[in-house]
Amino acid sequence: MPDQGTAATPLIEFQSLSRVFGAGAAAVRALDAVDMRIDEGEFIAIMGPSGSGKSTAMNILGCLDTPSSGAYRFKGVEIGRLDPARRALLRRRFIGFVFQGFNLLPRTSAVENVELPLIYRGAPQAERRELAMQALARVGLKGRERHTPAELSGGQQQRVAIARAIVTEPAVLLADEPTGNLDTSMSREIMDLLVALNRGQGITVVMVTHEPDMAAYAERVIRFIDGRIATDEHRGRAA
């Protein structure tokens, strides 16, 4: 494994990466020879109309999907052709997911939800509980560890989901419309939390959104249209 975080090796690199669904005349090029580079510590918003390929890009970034052609290098290592078991190991080790619909396990307490990724890492129970409690504290949910999702507000549920994503100290946090199901004030809270995690703890954040207000929190906005990157805009840190 090469050095981490040097300018020479980007955290993530797409090189002429394509993803084609279907075959023959019905084939759809969801991603069409995309070149993209993400460095450690960045906060990126991915925007674009539906069908532009941003979700496909996220799935490939998150090792949930594999490219049809081209290269996907993670810390300089080509991982585009790995089998499902190895991709599961990568997700476990390096990637944290936050979804629009929170995707918490129902009837399961916040702390148990946060422990979930640690279970698959084989962490002992006491250590798991300890780390999960810490993660919940980091997202401002101290005291609510025993609540089930049904007993929490949408914003709090998304905080639990973020705690679950960061409990493993991932290299990158992938957020797919994290504020899509939240009202404006809760959305701001969540965005502030993501910004704090990015700046305070150096977690790389890649977020898909279609709301310009939310994209405004990011330092860099990549816009997809028809499976290609239309614009890639560095803004510097938002005020």
Partner: peptide, 16 residues
Amino acid sequence: TREIGIRLAVGAQEEQ
């Protein structure tokens, strides 16, 4: 199904 999806996303392997 969704629960299984969540587990797979956070790094559960098929065997698990």
